[in-house]
Amino acid sequence: MREQSTKKGELDLPVSLRYKETKRQKTGVFFRRKVGWLFVIISIIAISIFNFYPMVQAFLLSFQSGMGANLEYVGFDNWQRLFGDPTFIAALTNTSIYLLIQVPLMIVLALFFSVLLNDPKLKFKGFFRIAIFLPCVTSLVAYSVVFKYLFGIDGIINQFLLNFGFISQTINFLADPFWAKVVIILAITWRWTGYNMIFYLAALQNVDKSIYEAARIDGANSIQQFFQITVPMLKPIILFTSITSTIGTLQIFDEIVNITNGGPGNATISISQYIYNLSFEYTPDFGYASTVSYVIVILVVILSIIQFRVAGEKK
């Protein structure tokens, strides 16, 4: 009955008025939607011009070759050249080594630190946290130069190792293909561990303490607690940090250029540095450089998908 009466009430309105009302409302909503686009349009245009358009350009360039501005289409020649190019293979191998050793090492260390620092009974917590995070305030170039000097042949690390009898003669870290890679990995780990630790610390604060309490009553030791509770609880954030770290390490450039400049030989050269060298150091070959750069794109996509899959499966 009631419904009917309201309906009736509505119907009582003069048709012209009803029409006006809805029209006004409609134009209001319509206008608001249009204004909504105004807020986002500049960013859409800018990102299209400075990110998506260059991506398309790079893809087209990867099928061209020539010096400087004289480019012509050569089909898949560049892509074939990749497999027989020793510098590219060195760059790809080195980048993979950095990725496979440095990212897991850093994530495990960061997790470990965050669990230790999350202990409410720990003293000097604030000091430890700031100390471990401090490397993040340095610029990549600045800390790279500092590391280069620290590990130099007359650097402080060599003197320390000599004085304490760990080695009998100085090691020329940066001139040795193995040690140079070790220095790079140590440097990146030094710079970024604290950064990742902060993410884990924040996530740990949201973990309900009673879960650990229950686990302790059930007789789980701290190692079991770590693997059975902490790691599963932090999985989303571990996924996030491993994806950002993977993308970062795949693109590594600043450290390589400023610590070893790719040397000795090409023992530490990374893919990004090779792209830079192909474009701006050697006789510029923008086409081939773009082909190499698409290898990074493909790797980023593949590795991100794998990481999502792995994280999804364990659920």
Binding site: P54, L61, I275, F286, A289, S290, S293, I296
Partner: peptide, 24 residues
């Protein structure tokens, strides 16, 4: 939808677009 597409640009490695940007 547009937002999701924009987010994809976060995965673009800078080294991949630096040459076209330089030419642009």
């Amino acid at each position: 939808i547009v937002f999701t597409i924009l987010l994809l640009s976060m995965m673009i490695p800078f080294a991949a677009i630096m040459v076209p940007l330089y030419r642009m």
